[in-house]
Design a protein around this nucleic acid. Sequence first.
DNA 1: TCTTGTCAACTAACATGTTAGTCGACAAGA
DNA 2: TCTTGTCGACTAACATGTTAGTTGACAAGA
Lengths: 236, 236
Amino acid sequence: MTNTDIDADRLQDINAFEGSLAQKVYLALQEAILSLQFRPGEVLRKAPICEKLGVSRSPVAEAIARLANEGLVDVIPQSGTRVAYFSMEDIREGSFLRQALELASVAKVASDRTEDQFAQINRNMRLQTLLIEDGDILGFYQADEAFHELLMLFTGYPRLKAVARLVSLQVTRARMLLLPTPGRAVETLEEHRAIFDAIQNRDPDGAQAALRHHLGQLMPRIEALAKTRPELFQSR
Amino acid sequence: MTNTDIDADRLQDINAFEGSLAQKVYLALQEAILSLQFRPGEVLRKAPICEKLGVSRSPVAEAIARLANEGLVDVIPQSGTRVAYFSMEDIREGSFLRQALELASVAKVASDRTEDQFAQINRNMRLQTLLIEDGDILGFYQADEAFHELLMLFTGYPRLKAVARLVSLQVTRARMLLLPTPGRAVETLEEHRAIFDAIQNRDPDGAQAALRHHLGQLMPRIEALAKTRPELFQSR
DNA sequence: TCTTGTCAACTAACATGTTAGTCGACAAGA
DNA sequence: TCTTGTCGACTAACATGTTAGTTGACAAGA
């Protein structure tokens, strides 16, 4: 356990976020953890965080409690808090849960979609195509996320998106390690198109199959990371 | 909004639970809300709760924050906290999310189950049968829950059960209004048996279909409540 | 070199003090 | 009767004080 570094003050300004102080601190810390600015195993010290952000211990304590609940930090009572290591078990589970939710969503959307909803998905698909044509990988990444969010949004269940995000936070963090490539983007677009076609045809089973294939591409790429970057998966 | 009653001190002793003070208070309050001892619309006052439970405001505040996050209470900032009303939208969503998770689980279990796991499910099924033979409806209710928990447990994903519980808390609360009947218990057992048979035959699709049918029985019965007990679904 | 015991520094958890904002009762006026 | 404005009681959110428990460094002894 030589890796007991202390976190520095590489935190965004708190006012970049909105809500209560606790909410702001929570978002700032989560951002830092998910973007890997805070690395697995690093110790989170409350006092420096309070000082840096200019708030008292209460909102920081509440924020850390939420992060612990999400599994992004490990709290050792009466001792300390550290950024959670990657865990393949957690990531596999998160992937499974997310897939379960998205499969149910896409089936419902394929069945129940309105024409207006379809038009919005269509627009997103054309945007994806456009961004790939321009080689804007980062933009495509965002459109990709928007595509999945649209599917969940159109179920009409407002909490769905938040739940899906919650269960797959570890997956989201792990994805940060996968550098996006043009080749993979093209493949992704094709997989999205298969889902899109099934939705157009109001084919729930086809949409599920296409989505299952799409999401199935992710885990093998993350599994490979466990061997490339073993230090991030340490202990646990 | 004439229904601004104040909550009384009908709370379990805190030491019936374990964990930190905040955890104990959280569990005690959640218990009271889910069991409908605290009724929708009632105002939660911190001071009496602190006094009754013999703790300071900190753990109570943390407990209420968690309940708000789960949607069991509505916090009006700088004003007050009240027990959330039932909302058909919330309940439909919870049911959808739970079904999504359970469908994925049962398919995986039907595919991957070990003989030992099957034996445990088999034992639970025989227990259910036994309890119905004896007319022990309450016991059957618990075995029913254990049946579903086993399915989630055997996926090998430890958070699954907690997530499923989290997303369907409103459904759980609503179920408290459905008085269990011997007739429904017998039907339930038959539906469980269909799932069980598909698991025995390692038939994921069959298991999903059987589970879908089983879970599909619940929502219509809850929908009926919205007309029988409209006061609980008020406003929102 | 390897234990073992002590102790200081640090922490989470809890208690308590403070503040700004909301709500409802009630009175004054129309 | 109905509106309107004031004021006090209450609240969530935040700041700060307190406590008990853990950890790790280090020295004393084997």
